[in-house]
Write a protein that binds this DNA or RNA. Structure first.
Lengths: 198, 198
DNA sequence: GTCTATAGGTGGATAGAC
DNA sequence: GTCTATCCACCTATAGAC
C-alpha cells in the first residue's frame, strides 16, 4: 500500500505540480480517506521524501547504463545519452529531483536524499577521472571538468523541461548531443583564445 | 503604492519562496488589509506577473552591460561576466524568472513575459552571430552554439542557486568562468575526438 | 483608498470508534 | 487499516460602508 500511495503522489505531481500533491487528493484517488494515509506515513513530508528518493532511484537506473561502455570515452558518451533519455522520458521526475528547491529545503537535509544527490555527481566525477586516466580528456582538475559537464547537462535539460527551448522531444535529443559535443571540442577558433580569456 | 506592493511581494518571495507570497502577508507588511490590495491590482496573479516582469528588468540591466565591450569577443565575455554577477547578486530573482515553472504556467503565456524571456535569448544569439562574423567563434549554426552557451550558463547558475555546488559566492564566480572557458576551448584531446562522437 | 464582514475554499493533522 | 468527526490555520475574493 505504501507503494500505491507513492505512485499516486507521483502521478499527482507529474500532472499538476507540487501544489497538487495533498493528502486529501492522494486519498481521493485511492478511494480512501485522507486520514488513512497516516497509517502508512507519519506525515506529508515523509511522503515527499520517499517520492524524491524514488525519483533518484529511477535516475540511477538510467545513469548506470553507462557502465556498459568498454572504454572511458564510451562510458562518458553513454552517460550523456542516458541523461537525455532520462530527461526526455521522465521530465517531471527531473523537475522533482533537480529543479524543486522548495522540496529540497524540506527534504534535502534528510541525509538519505543528500547522499543520493551526491552520488549522481560522484558518478560523473568518476567518468571524468577515468577519461583523464585513459587520456582522451585534456589534463586538468577533475572537479572543474565534471562541474562544467554537469552544468551543461543540467542547463540544457532545465531549459527543455521548462519549455524555453521551442523543440519537441526528438529535436531535443539532437540539440543536447550537439551541445555535449561542443563542450568536447570547444566553440572557439584557437588563434583567438587569448582574446577570449582577457 | 503599486511599487511598494511589488517590492514587498518580492521581499516575501526572496525570503521564503513562492508559498510565502499571499495577499494577506503582503498587506500585513504594508500595515493595510488584504482587501486594500485589490484597489491596485485586480488579483494575485497580476501581482505575480508584475513581479516577474520586474525580475526581467533587473536581469536586462545586467545583460546590457555587455554592450560596453569594443569587440564581439569582449562583448560575449562581458555577457558571461554580467550573467554571473546577476546570479550571485540576485539568486532569488534568478530562481523567480528562470526556475519557477509553476509561476511560468500562470504568467509565461501572458505575452509580455514570454517576449522578455525571448529577448534574453535573442541577446545571446546576437552575441554569437557577432562572434562568428568577427571570426573568433568557429563557423557553425548560431542557434546550436547559443543554446549550448545558454544551457551551460543556466545549468551552472541553477546548480549554484539550488545549493548543489558546495561553494561560496566567490568560488562560484571562478567556477563559472572556468566552465565558460572550457566551453570555449573544449575538454577533449583532439586526437580522440572521433572516439567521442561514436 | 481603505475598511469590515463574510463567503467559500484549501490544506494538515489529532482523537477515538470500529 | 480505515473510518467519522472535528479543529485550526490559511487562502482568494466579493459586497458594500466610509
Amino acid at each position: 500500500m505504501p507503494e500505491k500511495i507513492l505512485s499516486t503522489a507521483l502521478e499527482l505531481y507529474l500532472s499538476n505540480g507540487i501544489s497538487a500533491v495533498s493528502m486529501r487528493r492522494i486519498a481521493q484517488k485511492l478511494h480512501i480517506t485522507a486520514m488513512a494515509l497516516y497509517r502508512h506515513f507519519p506525515n506529508k513530508d515523509a511522503i515527499l521524501l520517499a517520492l524524491v528518493e524514488q525519483g533518484f532511484t529511477v535516475f540511477g537506473e538510467y545513469q548506470y547504463r553507462a557502465l556498459a561502455g568498454k572504454t572511458a570515452a564510451e562510458r562518458l558518451l553513454l552517460a550523456g545519452k542516458a541523461f537525455v533519455d532520462f530527461v526526455v522520458e521522465n521530465p517531471k521526475i527531473f523537475r522533482l529531483i533537480f529543479m524543486s528547491p522548495d522540496i529540497f529545503q524540506k527534504v534535502h537535509n534528510e541525509g538519505s536524499v543528500g547522499i543520493r544527490a551526491h552520488q549522481t555527481y560522484q558518478f560523473l566525477l568518476d567518468r571524468v577521472a577515468d577519461g583523464m586516466r585513459e587520456g582522451f580528456l585534456k589534463e586538468g582538475t577533475n572537479e572543474e571538468v565534471a562541474r562544467a559537464i554537469w552544468g551543461l547537462c543540467h542547463g540544457m535539460a532545465s531549459l527543455y523541461v521548462i519549455g524555453m527551448l521551442d523543440v519537441q522531444e526528438s529535436e531535443f535529443r539532437a540539440m543536447f548531443m550537439s551541445a555535449f559535443l561542443q563542450m568536447g571540442s570547444g566553440i572557439l577558433v584557437d588563434a583567438t583564445l587569448e582574446k577570449f580569456t582577457v
